[in-house]
Amino acid sequence: MKGERTNRLRVATLWLSGCSGCHMSLLDTDEFLLKLAEAIDLVHSPLADAPKFPSGVDLVLIEGGVGTEHDLERALLARSRSRQVVSLGDCAITGNVPALRNPLDREAIIREVYGVAWQPERLPALLPAVLPLHRVIAVDLFIPGCPPEPERIRTVLTAIIRGEAPQLPQEMLSFG
């Protein structure tokens, strides 16, 4: 039992400032999910019931940019507890749609969105700008796309499971 556990990759996924579309795309990998289930342990994920980010994680796929103090904390924690970090999708790589707020005034946006109902203690504080993940922590791999096509995710994960260095071909590299 113990020997078997060490062969399986401990994988986590994280959802920061994004729309969860990248997670949907991961679920969209169809029958590959079965292969994945054989090869990995999903130790923390919005898709799994494991509230704490554990230590000793082999691979973490992070969706979304870093837009709030809470995002920042979780990104730092994930980095410190994981061997390999993957930026999953355009939000994590470029800031993408959440970063559309960057040129605008932060306070004005909050007023616009929440109006008088704004209760600062109820929501995590917004950072001055939504940052790409790699501006905050070291990132080992990038899977661009909004959302990244399931094929791109499959290509990267297959290589990692096999213990190879993942290499996305040019046609799988475009943003958007």
């Binding site: 970063a99 040129p103 040019q170 046609e171 590299l173």
Partner: peptide, 16 residues
Amino acid sequence: AARFGIDHVRYAYLSP
């Protein structure tokens, strides 16, 4: 960007 293998941008986004 895809042709040159750019999967992320190392510079700060200026967001004008």
